[in-house]
Amino acid sequence: MVRVATYFGMSLGAFVFWQSMEKVHVWIALHQDEKKERLNSEAEIRIMREELLHQAKQNERLA
């Protein structure tokens, strides 16, 4: 009986551990995706800012 209870307890513990690791991996993946999206949007903003500054300099030269 003790062996069966121990086996059941270890199986339940392994299942809970597996499920929690699954949630941790999903959480990490989501945050990595959010970080990539944020970095991409910041890069796009930086490129647009540089283009606008370049256009402003050209307009100053023409004026």
Rank of each mutant, 00 (worst) to 15 (best):
A14W: 02
W27K: 03
K57W: 04
A14K: 08
Q19K: 15
S11N: 10
L62Q: 14
Q32M: 09
R61L: 14
E34V: 00
E50M: 14
Q55R: 12
G13Y: 01
G9F: 07
F8I: 06
F17K: 04
T6R: 15
L12R: 06
E44Q: 15
H25I: 00
E37D: 09
W18V: 08
A43W: 08
E22S: 07
F15N: 05
W18M: 05
I28D: 01
N59V: 06
R3S: 15
G13L: 05
H31R: 12
E34F: 05
M10V: 13
M21L: 11
M21D: 05
G13I: 00
N40H: 11
R38I: 03
E22M: 08
K57C: 02
R61C: 01
A14C: 03
V16W: 03
W18Y: 11
R49Y: 02
A29M: 06
G13K: 06
M1V: 11
E34Q: 10
Y7G: 08
K23H: 04
A29I: 00
L53T: 01
R3V: 07
E37G: 04
F17N: 03
R49P: 00
I28S: 01
E37R: 13
F15A: 05
V16A: 11
I45V: 07
K36P: 00
S20C: 01
H25C: 01
V4T: 14
E42H: 09
A43S: 15
L62T: 10
A14R: 09
R46E: 15
D33R: 10
Q19E: 14
M21N: 14
E51D: 15
K36L: 03
E42R: 09
L52S: 03
R38M: 07
L30S: 08
F8K: 14
A63K: 09
F17P: 01
E60D: 09
K35V: 02
Y7I: 15
A63V: 11
S20R: 07
Q19Y: 15
W18L: 06
E60C: 03
L52P: 00
A29E: 10
Q19S: 14
S11T: 12
E37M: 06
V2I: 12
Q32V: 05
V16F: 09
A43K: 14
D33Y: 01
M10C: 05
W18H: 09
K36H: 08
M21K: 12
E22Q: 13
L53A: 10
R61E: 13
H31C: 06
W27N: 01
